[in-house]
């Protein structure tokens, strides 16, 4: 992973904007931001993260690679789409935020232990393995990600919901034993690998 980062640094030298334009989903929109701050003012998460979208875009233009890619900002986005709706320059801000998160994750620069990132990873791993998300395992993994003691507490707190789901037939306790997969598990895995390969090629990423 950090190999990929070193390569990117070498390739774009000081031109982080160019790097974002070429490698981040919808990154070519960053140059069009006019710094009005409407997104910053619209984001419900605004007060809770380090950098608003407006700032992130300015930082990209100012070449602050390290700070942008290690920021927690794009991981805090809830995809509410407020900013996209309001941006007078029509920037697909939400998508750019996700693109940046993804890119920083791939480079291994995303903040360690950031909850959104952890959850996303669990979700993805579960999906890649069987072609399905095993809800029971996924939930439990989530509860226990901060240690065993905390996991028990979390699980106890959610007990009522869990039992309700079992009664309603929405949750099968047997899934804990491996769980069911989709019909062609291998096929799904191959498909995902191919998609990743195409994406890497397009964006000039080598893993």
């Amino acid at each position: 992973m950090s190999d990929m980062n070193t390569q990117a640094v070498a390739r774009y030298r000081n031109n982080f904007l160019k790097e974002v334009e070429e490698r981040v989903e919808d990154g070519h929109w960053v140059r069009m931001c006019m710094q009005c701050g409407v997104c910053a003012g619209s984001c419900p998460l605004g007060p809770h993260w380090e950098h608003s979208p407006q700032k992130i875009f300015m930082m990209i233009r100012a070449g602050k690679r390290e700070e942008v890619l290690t920021s927690d900002a794009m991981w805090m986005c809830t995809s509410c789409y407020n900013c996209i709706v309001r941006c007078p320059r029509k920037l697909p801000i939400t998508h750019i935020m996700h693109g940046l998160a993804h890119y920083s994750h791939r480079l291994g620069l995303a903040p360690k232990g950031q909850p959104t990132r952890e959850i996303a990873k669990l979700f993805w791993d579960s999906l890649v393995k069987t072609g399905r998300v095993n809800e029971l395992k996924f939930s439990l993994a989530m509860y226990f990600k901060d240690g065993f003691g905390q996991g028990i507490k979390n699980a106890m707190a959610m007990q009522g919901v869990g039992l309700g789901l079992v009664k309603a037939g929405r949750l099968n306790p047997m899934e804990i034993l491996g769980g069911h997969a989709c019909k062609d598990k291998g096929g799904i895995q191959k498909m995902i690998a191919k998609a990743q390969e195409i994406e890497n090629r397009k964006k000039g990423l080598t893993a």
């Binding site: 140059r31 006019m34 100012a62």
Partner: peptide
């Protein structure tokens, strides 16, 4: 906007 498109950076 056209200048931004052409890659002029506005700071």
């Amino acid at each position: 906007r056209s200048a931004q498109n052409k890659g002029v950076i506005f700071t």
